[in-house]
C-alpha cells in the first residue's frame, strides 16, 4: 500500500497582492513568495505518519503546477516523503478545480498501489475545497472530507474521525479512499537537516500531459468557471472612530451608545 499526498504551491500567507489589468501578482518581503499550501502541511505530515504507523510502503507527494512548484515538493521530501512527482504541462494552465481533478486523478492512476490519498482541506489561493471530492469522483473512490484523525487501517477498512460544524463524526469505509484533513489532525514536523540535504539532491520527475491518460478537458479553455474579474478590496469608507473620554467608564458608555445605534446588539 502506498500513500499519496496531493499538495499545491500557493502564495505565502504574508504575500502582498496587486492587480494590474486583471493580472494578479504578489510579493513577499520575507523573500519567499510561494510555499506549500499551509493547509497541506497537515496532509504531508499525515501521509508520513500513515507510512510510519499504518504500514504504508511509501509516502509520495504529488503536485500539479508550474515547474517552479518543485520548490514545494522539495519541502515535502525534506519533511520525509520518499518520492515527489510534479505534473506539469503548458496545456494545464488555467484549469479550474474540475480540470485539476482530472489531471490529478490521471496521475494517481499511474501510481501503482496507491490506496490512501490525502489532501489539505483547501488551498489558500482559490479557497474552494472542492478538489478532494472531485478527484475521488474521477477515480470512483470514496471521499471522506474534514478528517481530524485516522484511527485505524485494517485490511481494506479505514476508520476516520471527521470534524464538522456540529461535532465529531466517526466513519468506517473501504480502501481506496480520498481524504482531506483539517489542522486538528497533527502537528507538522520541521524538515530535518538530513531531509533538506536529501531533498536538494533529489531529481523530481515531471509528468506531462503526454504521460497521462486524462479523460475530459483541462486548462483555461475547459474551465467551467470564469474568475477573470479579480480586484482589490475597496477601501473601507471612513476611518476608525477612536472613542475618547476622561475615564474608561465614559469611553465604554460612548461605545455602547454607538453599538446600539449601529443595531448590532
Amino acid at each position: 500500500m502506498k500513500v499519496v499526498v496531493c499538495t499545491k504551491q500557493t502564495p505565502s500567507t504574508t504575500a502582498v497582492f496587486s492587480v494590474n489589468n486583471g493580472a494578479v501578482s504578489w510579493e513577499d518581503s520575507g523573500g519567499k513568495p510561494n510555499v506549500v499550501n499551509p493547509w497541506d502541511e497537515y496532509a504531508v505530515e499525515e501521509a508520513i505518519r500513515v507510512k510510519e504507523n499504518h504500514g504504508a510502503s511509501q509516502a509520495i507527494a504529488l503536485t500539479m503546477g508550474t515547474p517552479d512548484s518543485q520548490e514545494a515538493l522539495k519541502t515535502c521530501l525534506a519533511m520525509g516523503c520518499d518520492e515527489a512527482i510534479l505534473v506539469s504541462d503548458p496545456s494545464f494552465a488555467g484549469s479550474d478545480t474540475l480540470g485539476t481533478a482530472r489531471i490529478l486523478a490521471a496521475a494517481l492512476e499511474k501510481i501503482d498501489g496507491a490506496k490512501v490519498v490525502i489532501f489539505g482541506k483547501q488551498a489558500i489561493d482559490g479557497d474552494t475545497g472542492l478538489t478532494p471530492v472531485q478527484v475521488a469522483r474521477k477515480l470512483g473512490w470514496t471521499p471522506v472530507t474534514y478528517v481530524s484523525a485516522i484511527k485505524e487501517i485494517k485490511g481494506h477498512t479505514i476508520t476516520l474521525e471527521r470534524l464538522l460544524e456540529d461535532g465529531k463524526e466517526t466513519v468506517t469505509t473501504d480502501l481506496p479512499v480520498v481524504i482531506s484533513v483539517v489542522k486538528e489532525i497533527n502537528e507538522p514536523r520541521y524538515p530535518s537537516f538530513m531531509g533538506i540535504r536529501k531533498a536538494n539532491r533529489a531529481t523530481i520527475p515531471t509528468w506531462s500531459a503526454a504521460d497521462l491518460n486524462i479523460s475530459g478537458g483541462v486548462g483555461a479553455g475547459a474551465s467551467q468557471a470564469d474568475w477573470s474579474h479579480v480586484y482589490a478590496i475597496p477601501a473601507r469608507e471612513g476611518s476608525v472612530e477612536i472613542i475618547e473620554g476622561d475615564s474608561v467608564e465614559e469611553k465604554v458608555a460612548a461605545l455602547v451608545d454607538k453599538l446600539f445605534e449601529e443595531k448590532v446588539i
Partner: peptide
C-alpha cells in the same frame, strides 16, 4: 467572493 485568503475579491460565474 473573497480570494487569496480574503486579500482580493473576485466576481465569478459558471458557464454550464
Amino acid at each position: 467572493r473573497p480570494v487569496y485568503a480574503g486579500k482580493l475579491l473576485a466576481t465569478a460565474f459558471t458557464k454550464g
